[in-house]
Amino acid sequence: MDIVHLLRAVSVEFGLRQAEFAARNGMHPTDVRALICLLDAARADEPATAGLLGTRLGLNSAGTTAVIDRLERLGHVSRTRDPHDRRRVLLQIEPGALRLGHTFFDPLITDLLAVISSFAPPEQSTIRHFLTSARTAFTPEPHR
């Protein structure tokens, strides 16, 4: 149980940093989670749609629209037509939002990377396996 409690503590701390970033930048914590989802979609080369965002955040259509509208009003996200399917709207993070995130989170990421690099490659592999498996354990059944 010690590892479970430590994982929960790390999760709480990460959530607190996200909430701090949100508060400093006039956002709701869900807005930060939405930006993270959009960054993950871009990294995975997935089309970022409102449907994808709503599913990943566990929001209904109205809640998803409210998040997107807030992020668009703040200049963090833009909506564009999919060049391959003009009926579909894609979401894109604006460069200013990326800069804002880098300013706040880069020092934390740098510290975390230093911790990770202190582990030997086989230990890093074990950590990666654990975190991947933990994420799967927390993922609701339909999404597995």
Rank of each mutant, 00 (worst) to 15 (best):
V89G: 08
L7I: 04
Q124N: 09
S78F: 13
P121S: 08
L91H: 01
D40L: 12
F130C: 13
A23R: 11
N25Q: 07
A9K: 08
V115K: 10
L113P: 09
R43I: 13
R56K: 08
R43F: 11
R79G: 11
T103Q: 05
H102A: 09
E20M: 07
R135N: 04
H5S: 04
T132G: 13
R88W: 13
R70T: 01
I116Q: 14
G75E: 14
R81N: 12
G26V: 01
R43Q: 14
R56V: 06
A19G: 01
R73P: 01
D45Q: 05
G63C: 06
T64N: 02
S78W: 06
N60F: 04
H129A: 15
R87H: 11
A48H: 07
A22D: 00
R144F: 05
L113S: 05
T55I: 13
Q18P: 00
A44N: 13
V77Q: 00
I109V: 12
P95Y: 14
V77N: 01
A44D: 13
L91Y: 01
L52Y: 05
E20P: 01
Q18I: 01
E141I: 12
F21M: 07
E72H: 12
P122F: 10
T55G: 07
T65Q: 07
R79S: 06
F119A: 11
M27E: 00
A42V: 05
G15R: 14
R24M: 10
R99C: 07
Q124M: 03
D69S: 12
I3R: 11
L74R: 02
D45H: 04
R99V: 15
R144A: 12
P107S: 11
L35D: 00
I68V: 12
R33D: 05
L131M: 11
L108Y: 15
P95G: 14
P29A: 02
R81A: 08
I109S: 04
A44V: 03
E94K: 08
A48W: 02
E72M: 07
L90H: 05
R86Q: 09
L131E: 13
P107N: 14
H76T: 03
P142S: 14
F138D: 11
G96A: 13
Q92H: 09
H5E: 14
L53G: 00
R87C: 08
G51K: 08
G63L: 11
